[in-house]
């Protein structure tokens, strides 16, 4: 069953075509990734979904046109967007606070998740006192605790070193298996997309269009060992090949 459906979505900033033609869908409980070159317009798509910008085309959520953007999505921006002036605990309750949940109730809801997110003991710290990996986990905790219909994750691990990133991917895959969030993830890390996703959309360079939709038939739980590894490796190579052979952006073309 499709939760989110986009049909022929387009967006231009002034004269700059950013999204040329985006059609995609995300089913309930599905983990879908968007892969594409830098500057393609991936974050712009999230701006349309969260209502920060308006575009053309159809955006459908649970069968109805998407209008009340605030209700459906829990959005994690490209940078962690933690508020430096709030302690980690208060950062993670932010979304609940905006929803009108009282402070005590909000804290009670996030508290049990701190251990699961590897943040136990750091509730009273400020973001600047945490490592990059911990900050990303705090931002992720702030996002999932909102209990919206769907997660929008914009390069959650983009700023991390390779080792921490691999650890975080493994952790997120476990978490996802446990919670079965409906999720749309932006990344330009091919391995990350293959490791985490059920399906992958590959975007062209700006102006972005979907050049390929790829199913990832790998069994879960995923780990980077065993027979599945070779299959994953082949898939990664195939996707990388698509990305490297993307035609240079055709600019004004609007077919």
């Amino acid at each position: 069953m499709s939760r989110l459906g986009l049909r022929r979505v387009r967006k231009a900033f002034g004269g700059l075509d950013v999204l040329a033609d985006i059609s995609l869908s995300v089913d309930a409980g599905e983990f879908v990734s968007i892969l594409g070159p830098s500057g393609a317009g991936k974050s712009t798509l999230f701006q349309l979904l969260t209502g920060a910008e308006h575009g053309e085309g159809e955006m459908i959520f649970d069968g109805a046109p998407l209008d009340d953007h605030g209700r459906h999505f829990a959005f994690m921006p490209q940078r962690d967007a933690l508020m430096p002036w709030r302690r980690i605990l208060d950062n993670t309750t932010l979304g609940l606070e905006v929803q009108g949940v009282g402070r005590k109730a909000a804290r009670a809801r996030v508290a049990p998740l701190f251990a699961e997110f590897g943040l136990a003991g750091f509730e009273r710290h400020f973001p600047a006192q945490l490592s990059a990996g911990m900050r990303q986990r705090a931002a992720l905790l702030r996002t999932v605790v909102q209990e919206r219909d769907m997660l929008l994750l914009d390069e959650p691990f983009g700023a991390l070193d390779a080792l921490t990133r691999a650890a975080m991917q493994r952790w997120l895959e476990q978490m996802w298996r446990h919670h079965r969030w409906t999720a749309l993830l932006i990344t330009h890390d091919v391995r990350e997309a293959v490791f985490l996703s059920d399906r992958i959309y590959v975007f062209s360079a700006r102006p972005a269009r979907v050049v390929r939709e790829i199913k990832v038939p790998l069994p879960r739980p995923r780990d980077r060992t065993g027979t599945a590894t070779r299959q994953a490796g082949a898939l990664e190579a195939e996707i990388l090949d698509i990305l490297l052979n993307l035609q240079p952006s055709r600019g004004h073309d609007h077919d």
Binding site: Q47, T50, G51, A52, H69, G70, R71, F73, A74, F75, M76, P77, Q78, R79, A81, M83, L94, G95, V98, Q99, Q146, L152
Partner: peptide, 18 residues
Amino acid sequence: TEAEIGQMLRAMGAGRWR
């Protein structure tokens, strides 16, 4: 103000005053 923070808050459903 970081643009991402504003976008995130609006996605949470916050109005201009919030």
